[in-house]
């Protein structure tokens, strides 16, 4: 690879690393896994950089790799993962309430199936359209819709359940 290509690759990594790390973090739910995922993805991209850069939209390509790999990893680790029945902190009203709600949503995300979680992250964090999500995950648009619908239904139930637990514990409502 010539110096120009290396320079392009370096610029690409530096520009995409932070936003894709956040996506990876939401997809995996684990800081270390997210870092592993990014290192692996960007290494693969380096190996095929001349081809990937010619295709255009390498960021979308990276997102696709991350989303699909995260789904694969999630399947492997989910069997050994322990869910936490209690949140680490119960906030009070105001800003803390929003923080607590975010933690409740975080816990609820962990109950979703891998594809459902990926759809939620791509839809509500990455703001991708259903068609773009379908392209990213390699599934049909109708499947994206059904995953999204099922995920939101599951999240609603889980969030309500956790909020009830918080109320019983004396936390914010």
């Amino acid at each position: 690879m010539d110096d120009l290509a290396v320079s392009d690759y370096t610029a690409f990594v530096e520009a995409q690393w932070a936003p894709l790390f956040r996506t990876a973090y939401l997809l995996t739910g684990d800081y270390q896994l997210a870092e592993d995922l990014l290192q692996t993805t960007f290494t693969k991209i380096f190996l095929a950089w001349p081809r990937i850069s010619r295709l255009g939209q390498p960021g979308a390509y990276a997102r696709k790799m991350i989303s699909n790999q995260a789904t694969s990893w999630w399947r492997r680790r989910s069997s050994s993962e322990l869910s936490v029945s209690e949140l680490p902190e119960h906030g009070t009203a105001g800003h803390e309430h929003a923080v607590t709600q975010s933690l409740v949503v975080w816990e609820a995300l962990g109950t979703l199936a891998p594809r459902q979680r990926a759809v939620v992250v791509l839809r509500y964090y990455e703001d991708l359209s259903e068609a773009e999500i379908a392209e990213t995950l390699g599934i049909a648009t109708g499947t994206v819709k059904s995953h999204c619908s099922a995920a939101l239904a599951r999240l609603t139930v889980e969030i309500e359940k956790q909020n009830e637990d918080l109320t019983l514990d004396g936390g914010p409502t």
Partner: peptide
């Protein structure tokens, strides 16, 4: 969900 994942 949108606000929470953004905050997280």
């Amino acid at each position: 969900v949108r606000r929470s994942v953004g905050d997280l």
